[in-house]
């Protein structure tokens, strides 16, 4: 099994590297591979190539990889915590909750006056992430409380509905924020990795890195929780503190993604299933790196299709992800024995 995990990990890593390089070469202006590599290594003389690769495309590619990895790991955590194969930050409304948190903060600042808006703009990274984290955490706590009372499918439907509600409220709030003169996060309602500025990459990555460490630390007891709460306790797991630790890791992983990339759908839901299929196990620790790599690959592939040299720029990331993702979810709902038990 260990061999399977490392082989699949290496294969995923190689694909991710190749796809990153490919994504860096194309766009509005096609660059030869040699120029792209030259720009990356600093040996390229053409300023234009360097500017395009390092300042426009690299931040986008890096954001896609980091956000995809974060969503993949968060999906593993949530599917284990909720013991629900269709749980992830998007499907259970955590992303929408985070958006609502940001929208509330922006609106409040807009009505509080220009000083508040400029404060928010100046500390954009931390403040928007914090606002998103609050929203994500509240949504997660609500779903956790619900998850013990209702079945897997009911929870999924409620999560999606709460997500729609939050998104509706976000729309309304942002409208008022715009009228009051606050900065409007246009286009942000659709997920995209293109809006992440190079300076924002650190704010995106740091919480995710901490979240990944917490996730790894909780991996062993979380594996026991797959047997159910009582068995986990009989194996020495302190279930309540484990729940909060996993929740904290999820918030750290998901909040920066919401804040900087918007509600990226399906990645976190599908990546854990790919990881389980590749690893041949449901143990959490080997799943985390595989789901991270798989999520990164999926997010980057979606982004690569969006930014392919189309005649017109017409594709949205979530549209691509839905075309790939929704059928997979339908297959899971039909064929997963775990879901069948809950129907």
């Amino acid at each position: 099994m260990a061999a399977r995990v490392s082989t699949s990990g290496a294969a995923l890593l190689a694909s991710l590297g190749a796809l990153s390089l490919l994504t860096l070469t194309y766009g509005q202006i096609a660059l030869p591979l040699a120029d792209t590599v030259g720009a990356l290594t600093g040996t390229q003389s053409s300023d234009l190539a360097r500017q395009i690769v390092l300042e426009i495309r690299l931040p986008r590619v890096a954001a896609a990889i980091v956000a995809g990895a974060a969503l993949g790991m968060a999906g593993v955590l949530m599917q284990a915590l909720f013991r629900n194969p269709v749980a992830d930050a998007w499907s259970l409304g955590l992303l929408a909750g985070g958006q609502l948190g940001v929208a509330l903060t922006v609106t409040a600042a807009a009505f509080a006056g220009p000083a508040a808006v400029s404060f928010l703009t100046f500390f954009e990274g931390p403040s928007i992430t914090l606002a998103a984290a609050t929203g994500v955490a509240i949504a997660a706590l609500a779903m956790l409380a619900l998850g013990r009372r209702v079945g897997a499918i009911t929870l999924l439907v409620i999560g999606l509905m709460l997500g729609f509600t939050s998104q509706g409220l976000t729309s309304v709030l942002l409208h008022f924020a715009a009228r009051a003169g606050g900065r409007v996060y246009g286009g942000w309602r659709d997920a995209s990795f293109a809006g992440v500025a190079p300076s924002a990459l650190a704010w995106l990555s740091l919480p995710i890195l901490i979240g990944a460490c917490v996730a790894v630390a909780t991996a062993k007891p979380l594996s026991s929780l797959l047997l159910g709460e009582t068995y986990a306790r009989s194996l020495g797991v302190k279930v309540t503190s484990l729940r909060y630790a996993v929740l904290a890791a999820t918030v750290l992983l998901v909040a920066p993604v919401v804040a900087f990339c918007g509600p990226v759908s399906f990645v976190g839901l599908i990546a854990p299933h790919f990881a389980r299929a590749l690893a041949g196990t449901a143990r959490i620790l080997p799943l985390l790196p595989l789901a991270a790599l798989g999520g990164a690959l999926l997010a980057l592939a979606g982004d690569a299709i969006v930014h392919a040299p189309w005649e017109q720029h017409f594709l949205h990331l979530n549209a691509i992800l839905a075309i790939v993702g929704a059928p997979v979810v339908i297959l899971i709902l039909i064929f997963s024995p775990a879901v069948r038990q809950w129907r």
């Binding site: 284990a80 013991r83 797959l226 047997l227 196990t281 449901a282 143990r283 775990a338 038990q341």
Partner: peptide, 10 residues
């Protein structure tokens, strides 16, 4: 309990 993807050996 339902155990997504757990094998007997796991």
């Amino acid at each position: 309990q339902f155990n997504p993807g757990l094998r007997v050996e796991d």
